[in-house]
């Protein structure tokens, strides 16, 4: 399978990249890990005039963590680098799990955290935990920068709020709520190199007195055109002690909030069931982690 013709460009730095994007608006595809783009080029899903390689721009790579504030991650940071990061593993275990289950070691060595959101596949593994952690993204163009919540960035199947002259520069993942725990679980057809048929990320903090749910985010993946917040489920649980009976009702509510389709991986009916089971399992794991 050969690629369609394009012009390959390597900007020297971020400023040059933003100028290039301003100049060739709409005619450019950005190349970083290439695990999605090269396949889209092969399939002629994308036929850009220019492929702009940003994989050597160190300004877009790396992570820094400030205790109490949060984690800043450059969009072109490799998934494998984040998987090996002790900070990600210890402070953001649900994100670590989302990275661990992506593709294969080779895909994680090539692919980037930014690409996983920018590609905006409904079954991407990092957006649900990132949204559960209240992540925001920073977009840059020669017009300036702007920040928005990741849940407002991913707009649909392969659709984002990124304008043609913009790049996704970095993610900011705030310090998780005090006394909270966060977990992410998936259902796939096999262990390795699978594509999820449903996933659930849950972040939860309990009231120190009484144990009622104080803060909660429930995010579902692969059951809609984009990651979906289960807002009714969140509202049902907030302010209440999560008894077995309430968790059971919340699981039904969560399954009802999913908007899955039938496709080659699973039927919509099965996905509703999977979400119910995943919600229950993941919420119990969160409660167990909270002690």
């Amino acid at each position: 399978m050969h690629l369609p013709e394009f012009k390959y460009l390597v900007p020297e730095n971020k400023a040059a990249l933003l100028l290039l994007l301003g100049e060739h608006q709409g005619a450019v595809e950005l190349l970083s890990g290439g695990t999605d783009l090269i396949n889209d080029l092969k399939a002629r899903v994308k036929q850009p005039q220019y492929v702009v390689d940003i994989s050597s721009l160190r300004e877009l790579e790396g992570l820094s963590y400030e205790k109490g504030k949060g984690l800043t991650v450059g969009a072109a940071t490799k998934l494998a680098a984040l998987e090996r990061s002790p900070v990600v593993k210890e402070c953001y275990p649900a994100l670590h799990e989302g990275i661990r289950v992506i593709g294969s070691p080779q895909i994680r060595a090539m692919g980037t955290i930014g690409g996983n959101s920018c590609n905006a596949s409904p079954c991407a593994d990092t957006p649900p935990p990132l949204i559960a952690y209240r992540a925001t993204v920073r977009l840059a163009s020669k017009r300036g920068t702007r920040e928005l919540a990741l849940e407002d960035f991913i707009l649909g199947n392969r659709m984002t709020a990124r304008q043609p002259d913009e790049i996704l520069e970095s993610f900011f993942v705030p310090q998780p709520w005090p006394g909270s725990a966060c977990r992410f679980s998936i259902v796939g057809l096999r262990e390795a190199a699978e594509i999820d048929l449903a996933s659930v990320a849950i972040c939860c903090a309990l009231d120190a007195k009484g144990g009622a749910v104080k803060e909660l985010r429930v995010v579902m993946g692969s059951v809609g055109p984009m990651p979906l917040r289960a807002v009714q489920t969140e509202a049902m649980l907030k302010g209440h002690v999560p008894t077995a009976d309430l968790i059971d009702k919340a699981a039904d509510c969560c399954a009802g909030e999913a908007k899955p389709i039938d496709d080659q991986r699973a039927s919509a009916a099965y996905r509703h069931q999977a979400i119910r089971a995943l919600f229950t399992r993941t919420f119990k794991e969160v409660l167990a982690a909270l002690g």
């Binding site: 390959y8 396949n39 060595a109």
Partner: peptide
Amino acid sequence: GEAVLSCLTLALS
């Protein structure tokens, strides 16, 4: 130092 896929890598990269 990383195992990567040469079928998804541009020669120029």
